[in-house]
């Protein structure tokens, strides 16, 4: 209770008094960027690094990122690992099941262009960007957890900069 009573006093110190002016857009996108719930979608090696990033040392939760097992509750799909031709339609379907606005991070070389399986492989899809649209590419085989965190921060920046009209037009 004490703190709430003091809020007007603190607010008076801000230039412009108790009135803080901002746009709805900023508030919405700040909120959206700070609570990206990601889908647990790991297929190969990168999934282990995704797990490590979610676990003790790297701790995804401090970015407001919590894993969701179902696509219907997720904002973000981190495609961690090789996507084969057999898996590609399933990835597309998972993406379609997610609600707008939705974002995609392509984690690791395999999702970017096939990675080490580009040559001589008859079964690997050469890049996921012709299945689903990708927002952030993170290179590496597999990328370190720090790279993944950096990728997520970049995605947050991207979300903060977007306009409400942008995704209305989609």
């Amino acid at each position: 209770m004490g703190l709430i009573k003091k809020v007007p006093i603190y607010a008076e110190n801000i230039p412009g008094g108790a009135l803080v002016l901002t746009t709805l857009e900023t508030v919405l996108h700040q909120a959206q960027a700070k609570s990206l719930w990601y889908l647990l979608f790991g297929t190969a090696c990168c999934a282990i690094e995704l797990m490590c990033t979610g676990a003790s040392r790297y701790d995804f939760d401090r970015l407001g990122m919590i894993f969701r097992p179902t696509p219907r509750q997720a904002d973000l799909i981190i495609a961690a690992g090789t996507i084969t031709k057999k898996m590609a339609p399933r990835l597309r379907r998972l993406y379609d099941q997610m609600a707008e606005p939705r974002y995609v991070i392509a984690m690791g070389g395999c999702t970017i262009k096939g990675g080490p399986f580009y040559y001589d492989s008859y079964a690997v899809e050469k890049g996921i960007d012709h299945i689903i649209p990708v927002d952030i590419y993170i290179p590496g085989c597999p990328p370190r957890p720090e790279s993944l965190l950096e990728g997520c921060l970049q995605l947050q920046n991207k979300i903060k900069k977007q306009r409400l009209l942008d995704w209305q037009e989609k």
Partner: peptide, 25 residues
């Protein structure tokens, strides 16, 4: 069981196998 259900490009582990999107190193 290993290849996609709609696979129709023959037997890929054969040495003389080839396909349009198959890139050799």
């Amino acid at each position: 069981f290993l290849l996609p259900d709609e696979w129709d490009q023959g037997y890929p582990m054969r040495k003389n196998w080839d396909a349009p999107d198959f890139v050799r190193l």
